[in-house]
């Protein structure tokens, strides 16, 4: 996995396949936390942090507990090497827990968010006062669960399927999670600036609040289509 590839993954996650504008992920917090720039910044930073962490931890869960391979901890503890040697499908038939991905990922995320909250509170009260109120909200941010699920399949880049099974899949997951968070933050900041201005404007009454926020998001999505084809 070269630096160029990583940069392209980052660019793709931030601009081309922006989580909000191209994938419709995290729409509820996107509209909920974009009313002013300061809460947008706080939420954005918290999301970047949690999405990167989630990508790494969920990759590890998938690698060591769910995916049937010789690295699977359950196989190492309960499996038998002789049976695996005799039957090549042995590990796959007995230790394939990938159907539990969604369930385990959401539990991991909930625990992780709780844990991060406690650590930050202990280590950096300043950071906690900035991000603290946003962290509990993140558990239900579907972008976080989505990035963990999407990291498994990964993305197509220059004809190579990056994702689980590819040699650099952990690095890819980290970069994709980080980029997804940055893309979410960019979207959030742009939106918050616009909404602050709209508050001073003369939006027709029926459109004030949610409707105009959606329409603005639609126009931002049209603008972001300019990035199409940037990463093939």
């Amino acid at each position: 996995m070269t630096i160029t590839t990583l940069l392209l993954v980052l660019l793709s996650a931030v601009f081309v396949n922006n989580f909000v504008f191209a994938k419709f992920l995290g729409t509820c917090p996107y509209l909920g936390c974009s009313k002013d720039t300061s809460s947008a910044t706080g939420m954005g930073l918290a999301v970047i942090f949690v999405m990167t962490m989630t990508s790494a931890v969920c990759w590890a869960v998938y690698h060591f507990f769910l995916y049937p391979s010789t690295a699977n901890v359950l196989y190492l503890v309960f499996g038998s090497a002789q049976a695996a040697a005799a039957d090549s499908a042995y590990i796959k038939t007995h230790f394939d827990l990938t159907f539990l991905s969604t369930l385990s990922f959401i539990l991991v995320i909930a625990a992780l968010v709780q844990f991060v909250e406690m650590v930050i509170q202990k280590v950096s009260p300043a950071l906690y006062s900035a991000l603290g109120i946003y962290l509990p909200l993140i558990t239900t941010n579907c972008a976080v669960l989505a990035v963990a699920i999407l990291n498994i399949d990964g993305m197509m880049l220059h004809g190579t399927q990056l994702g689980y099974g590819h040699s650099g899949s952990l690095l890819f997951a980290l970069m994709n999670g980080f980029g997804g968070g940055v893309g979410f933050t960019v979207a959030l900041l742009l939106m918050s600036g616009i909404r602050e201005r709209l508050d001073l404007g003369d939006v027709p009454r029926p459109l004030r609040g949610m409707p105009i926020a959606f329409i603005t998001a639609g126009l931002l999505a049209i603008s972001f289509m300019g990035f199409l084809g940037l990463v093939k």
Binding site: P204, M210, P211, I212, A217, G218, A221, I222, M225
Partner: peptide
């Protein structure tokens, strides 16, 4: 595509309001 989704929902919400 993506823009159509946002615009449709936004205008529907406005219409209901």
């Amino acid at each position: 595509l993506a823009p159509g989704a946002f615009l449709t929902l936004g205008l529907l919400l406005g219409w209901k309001r």
